[in-house]
Computed example of a mutant assay.
Amino acid sequence: MKMFIVKSICVVALMVISVLTGMQLANNGIHKIKGYDDPNFQNAVSIQESGNNISSSFLGNDISSHDIEAKKKKLEEIGAFNFFSSMGKKMSDGISGASEKLIKLITD
């Protein structure tokens, strides 16, 4: 049993190393195919800190905390309704009431 666990751990470690190596080789291949360093070639996610300000971008679109706060306020104003949440609350209230009545019936 110990040998099986050791072999499994070795295989998993080898797979992780292989995946990381493949990702690095793919990145180098992309740069080699382009033939030059393109300043427009951006990372998928980037975060820059300058003093108290933090700016981030996701797939080239700038994201700020003001955008997130505006979306949060908009959702609060709309009063987003979650059907499954309300259905779950009604079911739990019904089950709780039924179990209380059953317990009272049994104990009396």
Score class of each variant (00 low, 15 high):
12 V>E: 00
12 V>R: 10
12 V>A: 11
13 A>N: 12
13 A>M: 02
13 A>Y: 13
14 L>V: 02
14 L>W: 05
15 M>F: 14
16 V>M: 05
17 I>T: 15
19 V>D: 07
20 L>I: 08
21 T>W: 03
22 G>E: 03
22 G>H: 03
22 G>I: 03
23 M>N: 05
24 Q>K: 10
25 L>N: 10
26 A>D: 13
27 N>I: 10
27 N>C: 06
27 N>W: 08
27 N>Y: 11
28 N>Q: 10
28 N>W: 14
29 G>V: 02
31 H>D: 11
31 H>G: 10
32 K>Y: 13
33 I>K: 14
33 I>C: 04
33 I>V: 15
33 I>R: 08
35 G>I: 04
36 Y>M: 14
36 Y>H: 13
36 Y>W: 15
37 D>E: 15
39 P>H: 04
39 P>K: 11
39 P>N: 05
40 N>T: 13
40 N>K: 15
41 F>K: 04
42 Q>A: 09
42 Q>F: 07
42 Q>R: 08
42 Q>Y: 08
43 N>E: 05
43 N>F: 11
44 A>W: 02
45 V>Q: 01
45 V>T: 04
45 V>R: 00
48 Q>A: 09
48 Q>I: 01
48 Q>N: 11
48 Q>P: 03
49 E>W: 01
49 E>A: 04
51 G>R: 03
52 N>L: 15
54 I>P: 00
54 I>T: 08
54 I>D: 03
56 S>C: 08
58 F>I: 11
58 F>P: 05
58 F>Q: 11
59 L>H: 01
59 L>I: 09
60 G>N: 07
61 N>W: 03
62 D>E: 09
62 D>I: 12
62 D>G: 07
64 S>C: 04
64 S>M: 00
64 S>I: 00
64 S>V: 02
65 S>V: 07
65 S>W: 07
65 S>F: 09
67 D>S: 07
67 D>Y: 12
69 E>T: 15
69 E>F: 03
69 E>L: 13
70 A>I: 03
